[in-house]
Design a protein around this nucleic acid. Structure first.
Lengths: 225, 225
DNA sequence: CGCGTAAAGTCTACATCGTAGAGCAAGTGT
DNA sequence: ACACTTGCTCTACGATGTAGACTTTACGCG
């Protein structure tokens, strides 16, 4: 017969949860469904997460842990750029998790968030401070940077259609529903919308932002050598 | 006795829904609860919204309608700046709705969104194109702009604590929970985090972004006279 | 006026959800 | 061999979204 059930662990539970979310969306992640995937009674899950909410937090944490940050890199601009691209890829890998990443912190004060979700903040602060920024400026840079980054990801995911074949078709079909009178420019842009290069767009945006930050902020921070 | 129940309308239902969300959060918006507020059977709501999801969309739409955009203003930079501040205030007025605004489009292709939520896009495109941008560039500008804007709002709302008195206390209390070894910079920044001026931060960000865009994009677009 | 039809609102019922609380089963230290 | 802890299961409860049949109200037209 099938595999003898191995002992459950938090990691096991969370990664099963993540898989479920990746495959079938956030709503599919119910206690009962997850229990079923793990061949356990739903109630057993409460050993490894207090709530469903805590479970969601755990999934966020798990995903964010996929993001590598090297706070000791002296080339802060390159590092920020790389992180941005990494996070973008992460988002494309786990699009269904993004709502969690974006939404849960809104109802959780900084100090009570899962540590894994606060760590990137600390590490980027470290990166910037080590690169010569005053702590306060580092915070400002972080805010502008992360704000822009999350904004871009949300933007891109909004326009992202899963099936790359029907991509254009779906888009046009969608746009076709808009009243021509009220949405002329949008409809006219349909072809452009259809081939959206998120990577390039992000990269340009980061460039603009970084050079802008550099210009407007305190001097004395080394540019890329 | 009390008011004779007036006939229900979509507007009535939606604004009651919005009020409920504003007052008690998204989770409080259940069919039953809303029915109770309107002194109607929960089932009657289905005349005015197909689903709970559709109801949520309606609320998004209602909120976004509070945002005024004047696409004919020739001073696009000033207009974008003003819209940014307006949207920020809107977000602070309806913080509980923001998760909706940000999350629902992720699961709804452009063409199937409530018209009210697509209109800002159209109008900003109009604004930019009328100001002299090529349509494609207008789209790029829009993306960078709206991305940054939403990013900022999410950022600010994350750090926003409802009770302005306990503000600092709560923040410190929260940060106090973080292990000192792992989060030294973040903890050191507690005082700075406590007095966050979202308006200023947004304004600077917009400045950086707009001048950056202007510099990197096709010339021939008039700067503010 | 009245009556037939459509619209608005209600009632009942069901599947599904999160989770409390009591209990069972296997391992562990003494 | 025995008490305890730890992992897991069972049963049960209240709440939710919503389908489908029903009743009530409003209204146009003879």
């Amino acid at each position: 017969m099938a595999s003898q059930k191995p002992r459950l662990t938090r990691e096991l539970v969370l990664s099963a949860a993540l898989e479920l979310v990746d495959d079938e969306g956030l709503d599919a992640l119910t206690m009962r469904r997850l229990g079923q995937v793990l061949e356990r009674d739903p109630m057993s899950l409460y050993r490894y997460a207090e709530n469903r909410a805590a479970l969601l937090d755990g999934v966020s944490e798990l995903v964010l842990n996929e993001l590598a940050i090297f706070p000791s890199d002296p080339d802060w601009k390159a590092q920020l750029r790389r992180i941005a691209h990494d996070l973008r890829l992460l988002a494309l890998r786990h699009p269904n998790v993004i709502p969690l990443l974006v939404t849960r912190p809104l109802s959780t004060p900084l100090g009570m968030r899962p540590l894994g979700t606060v760590r990137p903040l600390e590490q980027i602060l470290a990166l910037l401070i080590d690169a010569g920024f005053a702590p306060t400026d580092a915070l400002h840079v972080y805010r502008a940077y992360y704000g822009f980054l999350y904004g871009h990801i949300l933007n891109e995911l909004q326009e992202y259609i899963v099936d790359p074949e029907e991509n254009e078709a779906l888009l046009r079909l969608g746009l076709h529903r808009l009243p021509a009178k009220d949405f002329p420019r949008l409809r006219a842009l349909a072809p452009v919308l259809a081939d959206y290069d998120g990577e390039a767009e992000l990269d340009q945006g980061i460039t603009i932002l970084l050079s802008g930050l550099e210009a407007h902020l305190y001097r004395g921070v080394p540019a890329t050598p």
